[in-house]
């Protein structure tokens, strides 16, 4: 079986539906007149599984449209930048965290130039500090 777009999409929907069903299994559902917090989630999860199966079946019947694989490098860089920001900000302050986002984020693009990255990391973290902390008065530490 080739990488069929719709089959994969359907599988994702079904997976989310099953996960929602599993996690929410013990939520009180109540009755239709006095619905509990579990009523809506269970209903939605069931409908999502249904739609997922329908999407997948339609994908099997129709002409197969393959999907592209996801490029790892940009994904890893963006995720890394976000993680670095959230770890560094409380520990080290806004300026180092900003510089890290620019530096790590730039790794996602093969043709980034080290000197440019360094310069823009410096410039942007300074600009950020000026704009958000002094300009808009956010209460974030600049340095540790």
């Amino acid at each position: 079986m080739t990488r069929r777009q719709d089959v994969a999409a359907g599988a994702i929907f079904v997976a989310f539906g099953i996960a929602a069903l599993g996690v929410g299994w013990n939520y009180p559902t109540g009755s239709a007149t006095r619905m509990g917090p579990g009523y809506f989630p269970m209903l939605l999860a069931a409908v999502l599984i249904g739609f997922g199966i329908a999407v997948a079946l339609a994908g099997l019947r129709n002409r197969a449209i393959p999907f592209e694989r996801m490029a790892l490098r940009p994904a890893a860089a963006i995720m890394g930048a976000a993680l670095a920001f959230s770890v560094l900000l409380p520990l080290a302050g806004l300026v180092p965290a900003s510089a890290a986002v620019v530096a790590i984020g730039s790794l996602g693009y093969r043709e980034s130039r080290p000197v440019e990255v360094l310069l823009s990391a410096l410039l942007l973290s300074a600009f950020n500090a000026a704009l958000f902390v002094w300009g808009l008065g956010l209460t974030i530490n600049l340095f540790w």
Partner: peptide, 15 residues
């Protein structure tokens, strides 16, 4: 150039 633009966008999103 996009290589300079996107890290800036990313940073503004984070903050």
């Amino acid at each position: 150039p996009y290589r300079l633009l996107y890290p800036a966008i990313l940073l503004f999103c984070c903050v």
